[in-house]
Amino acid sequence: MTRRDAVFPPDRHALYDAHQYSPAIRSGDLLFVSGQVGSRADGSPEPDFARQVKLAFDNLNAVLKAAGASFDDVIDVISFHTDPEKQFETVMGIRAQEIGEAPWPTWTALGVTWLAGFDFEIKVVARVPLAKM
């Protein structure tokens, strides 16, 4: 078995070490990005929901950039929400600013009861052409 090709952004967050996971794993031209949350550098949740969502996208974009990718390379998204009905409008507003023009990636949104103190998490799979790596 080949060793995992882990991708870390330059500003490594405390959560990666605390919970023992990699922000992303590259396999060929596919990039599997772990769920990104609106954590501050010390790993604590951003308390303001809109800022937490924006910070989750910022953290996601940092991981994508470290792999030589951008949101344009994302093909599949899964997002997790602790209160989807109340959070929907805020998430959709920030999402519209972050994901660019159509065609958009596939997207599955899930309501969950627990995200370790966070209220939003976003996980993606991207295709990063080997020429970009």
Score class of each variant (00 low, 15 high):
63 V>D: 02
45 P>R: 10
91 V>M: 01
121 E>I: 05
24 A>E: 06
50 A>R: 06
53 V>S: 06
68 G>N: 08
17 D>F: 07
2 T>P: 12
77 V>D: 05
27 S>K: 10
34 S>P: 11
17 D>N: 05
97 Q>K: 01
79 S>L: 06
84 P>F: 12
78 I>Y: 15
40 R>H: 08
3 R>M: 15
123 K>I: 10
59 N>M: 02
70 S>E: 10
124 V>F: 04
9 P>H: 07
28 G>V: 02
130 L>M: 12
5 D>S: 14
45 P>L: 10
73 D>V: 02
62 A>C: 06
109 A>G: 15
31 L>A: 01
31 L>C: 03
39 S>R: 09
2 T>A: 13
6 A>F: 15
75 I>C: 09
41 A>I: 13
91 V>A: 05
133 M>T: 09
36 Q>M: 04
23 P>G: 04
41 A>F: 11
25 I>Q: 05
20 Q>M: 08
20 Q>G: 09
12 R>H: 03
48 D>K: 11
48 D>R: 14
108 T>D: 15
99 I>Y: 01
101 E>F: 02
79 S>W: 07
88 F>E: 13
110 L>Y: 15
17 D>T: 09
6 A>G: 13
41 A>M: 10
63 V>K: 03
43 G>E: 06
61 N>M: 10
55 L>S: 09
9 P>T: 01
101 E>P: 04
89 E>C: 13
90 T>G: 10
112 V>A: 04
106 T>M: 12
52 Q>G: 07
107 W>A: 06
17 D>Y: 04
114 W>A: 14
4 R>F: 13
91 V>K: 01
123 K>T: 10
11 D>P: 00
37 V>W: 07
91 V>W: 00
126 A>Y: 00
47 P>K: 11
19 H>M: 13
85 E>T: 14
73 D>F: 04
7 V>Q: 02
32 F>S: 10
109 A>C: 15
131 A>Q: 15
11 D>S: 03
36 Q>C: 07
77 V>W: 05
48 D>V: 11
26 R>S: 08
51 R>S: 08
9 P>N: 08
112 V>F: 10
100 G>Y: 00
100 G>I: 03
119 D>F: 08
130 L>F: 07
89 E>S: 11
92 M>Y: 12
45 P>A: 11
90 T>A: 08
20 Q>F: 15
78 I>D: 13
